[in-house]
Design a protein around this nucleic acid. Structure first.
Length: 470
RNA sequence: GGCGACGUACCCAAGUGGUCUAAGGGGGAGGUCUGCAAAACCUCUAUUCACCGGUUCGAAUCCGGUCGUCGCCUCCA
């Protein structure tokens, strides 16, 4: 059983074999921090998160690098509009990004390099490119990569460079390039813009060079996986390949993975389109981070995903179903023999789950395996044919699968003491068959964001999805 | 103009030529259980996979065409 991933370059699902046995290096294009990241951005980050989690679940040692772009045209424009230094702006939104990522339970990357901290690495690369004849300094002092010097240009997008509709959509020449298709490696300093004094002269890096410099700095000249949204395939990733391979003479990335767009209202979500929704907006409408994570993850990464409140409602229900079975398993009290078929049931679920994710991260099929197991566990819970030990084992098992999905409730969730007290009083009221008091306490807890349900093994509580705690 | 992806039930969605009279989630309808509520469980909700041809003993799955939707070629996750 091997993991297969679809490489953008070939379009085929190829067996994943890491460069070094058992170890995987992944680079993911991260956020440009000039404003809050929207849920479309998070789709691509969470897809990478799922990949990392699955690789670790499969036993690989993973080194995950995600850049934070903290200098570029938009950042400069935004900082100027606010009248603050770019560092102040980028610090603010980098922190916001990390907080959003945390609430969405995104795995923390092992390295989160920032462009402005890696200027020397970029300069070094650019000098290498100039030395090898792949880059040139134009009349305005900026440095460009010469696409004509790189015959393999276009292999990632499957575009013949001569077919590019140059000129039609390129705005009036801001810079003095030799060829409209050439891209900037180093932008010469301009009044009012941040710049770095380097051996290349004062200026700032182009966008593409930062990813080449930082990925190779932390993962080496050749590494396993590089992820991003489809909109980065061209020109960003194509340019990364050209400049990296031209500089090092070695293959850059072994497998390219790109996730499809998140759509809203039938078209891709993008700041430029204006149809964006940020995590904070979603929470404000009463949805939980768990539900948001589920909604962004539940559809295969290479399929466009239509994002809506309807999809969030469906996600909320699915996530609750998981939370409830875990609570029920935890509360289960029954003296009886172990279920002799439980082992086979769990083994089968694990095999289905793993095989599905191994097939190019087929998360929909993996979720199918999880929910089939959930229904079967509920049946056995209902029929009381599990022992208490079985129930504990099943719960641990489900949490094990959830190490990949990260959509279930935390194990050790505790109620604040005052709410705990209400629960205890309700138990007493119910023992006395005082239904009025029981119902009143249930309502009081509901007002505090806690749902209480009466099950065979006693009352069962959980936090309301999207409630005050989330 | 060039390149590419996709079209499965009310919605989302899996389906890697035969076990598909097509997983799973949501929604809806009935039922069981229950002080009530909720949850859970059971039954039902596609003999059909945009449409038309073709290949094959056999196709949702392969090929061709038609229609439709979306994306990239420009900053973009």
């Amino acid at each position: 059983m091997t993991l297969r991933l679809v490489d953008t370059r070939t379009g085929a699902a190829e067996p994943f074999v890491p460069l070094r046995e058992g170890e995987v290096g992944i680079y993911s294009c991260g956020p440009t921090v000039y404003g809050p990241a929207h849920v479309g951005n998070f789709r691509s980050f969470l897809f990478a998160d799922l990949l990392v989690r699955h690789l670790r679940f499969r036993g690989f040692t993973v080194r995950w690098v995600m850049n934070i772009t903290d200098v570029d045209d938009k950042i400069i424009a935004r900082a100027a509009a606010e009248g603050v230094p770019i560092g102040e702006l980028t610090e603010r939104y980098a922190a916001a990004f990390l907080e959003d990522a945390r609430r969405l339970r995104m795995t923390m990357p092992d390295v989160l390099p920032r462009a402005t901290h890696h200027i020397p690495e970029m300069v070094e690369l650019i000098e290498l490119l100039i030395g090898r004849g792949h880059a040139y300094r134009a009349d305005d002092g900026s440095i460009y990569f010469r696409i004509a010097s790189w015959p393999r240009y276009g292999t990632l997008v499957h575009i013949d460079p001569s077919q590019l509709r140059v000129g039609e959509r390129v705005s009036a020449d801001e810079y003095a390039k030799d060829d409209a298709r050439d891209f900037a490696l180093w932008k010469v300093a301009r009044p009012g813009e941040p710049s770095w004094g380097t051996s290349l002269g004062p200026g700032r890096p182009g966008w593409h060079i930062e990813c080449s410099a930082m990925s190779m700095r932390y993962l080496g000249p050749t590494f396993d996986l590089h992820t991003g949204g489809v909109d980065l395939v061209f020109p960003h990733h194509e340019d990364e390949i050209a400049q990296s391979e031209a500089a090092t003479g070695k293959p850059f990335v072994r497998t390219w993975l790109h996730c499809a767009h998140l759509r809203m209202g039938g078209v891709k979500m993008a700041k430029s389109v204006g149809n964006i929704d940020c995590p904070a907006d979603v929470y404000e409408r009463g949805f939980s981070p768990r539900a948001l994570r589920y909604a962004l993850l539940a559809v295969h990464y290479r399929s466009p995903l239509e994002f809506s409140d309807e999809s969030l409602h469906a996600a909320t229900a699915a996530v609750e179903r998981l939370a409830i079975v875990l609570k029920t398993l935890g509360a289960y009290r029954h003296e009886g023999p172990d279920d002799p078929t439980l082992t086979a049931l769990l083994d089968e679920a694990r095999a289905d789950f793993t095989a599905s994710l191994d097939h190019d991260l087929n998360v929909a099929a993996a979720l199918g395996a999880v929910f089939e197991l959930v229904r079967e566990l509920n049946r056995r819970l209902e029929a009381r044919c599990l022992s208490a030990a079985d129930a504990a084992r099943a719960a641990t098992f489900l949490r094990g699968l959830d190490a990949v999905l990260a959509v279930a409730e935390e194990d050790a969730e505790r109620l604040p003491p005052e709410l705990e007290g209400l629960l205890e009083r309700r138990v007493a009221a119910r023992a006395a068959r005082d239904w009025t008091e029981s119902d009143r306490l249930r309502q009081e807890l509901a007002n505090a964001g806690v749902t209480v349900e009466d099950a065979r093994d006693g009352q069962r509580w959980r936090f309301v999805e999207g409630g005050p705690r989330d």
